[in-house]
Structures are given as structure tokens and as C-alpha cells.
Amino acid sequence: MRVELRKWLRKNAGYVAIWIFMGLTLLALVIREIGVYTLVVIAPFLPPFVIAMVKMARELRKR
């Protein structure tokens, strides 16, 4: 499905906030549990995360 990102984000801000809250809370708890080794767990996913963020920023800047 293709969405118009800006509109989609505005319409679903509540869902986005819940997902971000859950993600950041668990990240904080994992860091508390395994400390610096968290980097080993998340390192393989940093490149796709960066690519996704760049694409998203580009999409938002377009309009």
C-alpha cells in the first residue's frame, strides 16, 4: 500500500506515539539489562533503520 506520509502521520499520530513509546521503553529496559551489549543486538538493524529514516525524511520534504 502506498500512503501519503504527512497525511498518514497526522491521521494516525496516536498509533505512532504508542509504537514509539513501546519501542523506546523496551530499548531502555534492554539497555538496563545488558548494557553496552545492546549495541550488538541492534547494530545489524541500524543500516535499515537509517535507510528508512532517510527515505521518510525525503518523502516528508517533498510536499
Binding site: 550488538v40 543486538v41 538493524f45 535499515p48
Partner: peptide
């Protein structure tokens, strides 16, 4: 944790 994230490495073609 690493194992549970490992399958998602095939997300690259979708992102690119």
C-alpha cells in the same frame, strides 16, 4: 534477542 531479529535482515531489498 539476536536470533529473534535475524530473520528481518531480508528487509533490505524492500527498503531499497
Amino acid at each position: 534477542l539476536i536470533g529473534s531479529g535475524f530473520p528481518n535482515l531480508d528487509v533490505f531489498p524492500t527498503l531499497l
